[in-house]
Every structure is written in structure tokens, then in C-alpha cells.
Amino acid sequence: MAQVSSISNEQTSPTSKLITLRISRFNPEHDESSGFMEFSVSYEKWTTVLEAILDVKKHHDHSVGVRYSCRQATCGSCGMIINGKPRLACFTKISELNSDVVTVEPMNNFPIIRDLAVKFEKLFDTHQKIKPYLIRDDTEIESNEKEFLQSPEEVEQYIQFANCIKCGLCNSACPTMATDSSFVGPQALAQAYRYVADSRDKGKDSRLKIIDDSHGIWRCHFAGSCSQVCPKGVDPAMGIQLLRGYMLGFRS
């Protein structure tokens, strides 16, 4: 399937350079295995991997399957393996990769829809499983106060984990995820911590019960790869260990 083609880019500027973009192609409906297509793409210092892929789609092969939306590391849809590591294509500049060859592949540990796009059903299912909402008996409308007050310190306890954009990079890097298809995964576990650590939430016990499972939190070995790839600084590994600290009685 290898193919080299140069893109006649009308906007080529004196500062632009060339890289070889290798795109993994696979359509589960009729392909036996995946193969790479190679394209020569010009880039500037600020060009992102997503822009390079869209360049290929625009000028050469519009059939390349890729998912994206916000182009600003907010929607979480453009996660893929870029030069061996899970990253957001819209948040990764070609210049920062320091390589003449940029290889893009679909994220590991997710079923492939086509080419670079993967299925997120399982990610969203496990996210929902840990009850990602405040649990309490009263509601804001019934209570005398207009809102549930929190001090800045109380906000600090969880706000880092609320940054999660459900991009799945952490689940793709996780070594347990690599072999255990039932593992709840770093994304959902970090979200369990996000709600457990929220002073407005009263659902700690029910959430801990959900993750205290044979394919739950105990499958984490603190390899930390999730935190190393997270594009939003969520640090799932920290959340998971703090959560386990509660469960083991190290913390209250």
C-alpha cells in the first residue's frame, strides 16, 4: 500500500520544510491488515500534525479517515499514536517532534473504525459507570442556599481532574489496558477521584464500591504512563493512588 506523493502546495513559503507523513490505513470492513501510505508534506514551525493530515486530505487523498473537531485540545477527538506515543494531533506541532518522518497510527486499546479514527463506546461506558455527577440527597433548587459553597482550597482538591477531555490517550498508554479488556482504565478511575474529592459530593461509598472490582482499581500498577501522555495535566496516576489511599485506609 506504500505510496509516495508530493503535495503541490501553492502556499509554500521560504520558511517551510518537508517531512514524510506516514499514515496508517485500515478499513476493518475489507482489509486484512493495516498498511502505511506515505506523503511528503511541507510544514512551518507552527504546523500541527492534524493540519498536515488535513493537508493530505485536501490535496491528495480525501479518503483518509480521521476524527477532529475543535482543533484546540478541547474536544478530545483527535487522539492518535504519533511517532510511537499517544498524543492529540491538534496539540502536537510537527517541529516539536524533531523528526523527518512523522508516523500516525490509530490509538492502541480502542477498536478501529477506519484509519486513524477509533471507537470510544467503551471509554464513555466506563466513564459513565463511575457516576460522573454529584450525588447527594438535596438539590440546589430545594436548598436554602442558591449554590453549594466551596472554598478555593476545596476546589483545588478536584479541579485538576475536572480538566479531563475524554480523549483516551491515557487508556491507550496504560500497560494494564494493553492486555485486560475489562479493566476500567485510568480515565474512569481519575474521574472517580474527581467526584470523590469534591466536597459537594456524597457518593464516595457507592463509587468506591464500583471500582473495588477484580478489573477495577487494583489492576493499576502505578506505571504512570497515563500521566505522561495526558494533554491536560490531569495526572490520572495521582488520582488513582490517592483513591487507593482512601480504600487502603492510608488516607481519610
Binding site: Y158, F161, N163, F222, G233, D235, Q241, R244, F250
Partner: peptide
Amino acid sequence: GHGGIGVGKPARPDYPY
């Protein structure tokens, strides 16, 4: 680490995270 010891404190993260 598994007991949550020495794994850092939650804080608002800043780029480069």
C-alpha cells in the same frame, strides 16, 4: 505510592503539565 504517599498534591496544572 499505592497508598497515595509521595504522589504529589492535586493542584491546578499549568502547561507543559
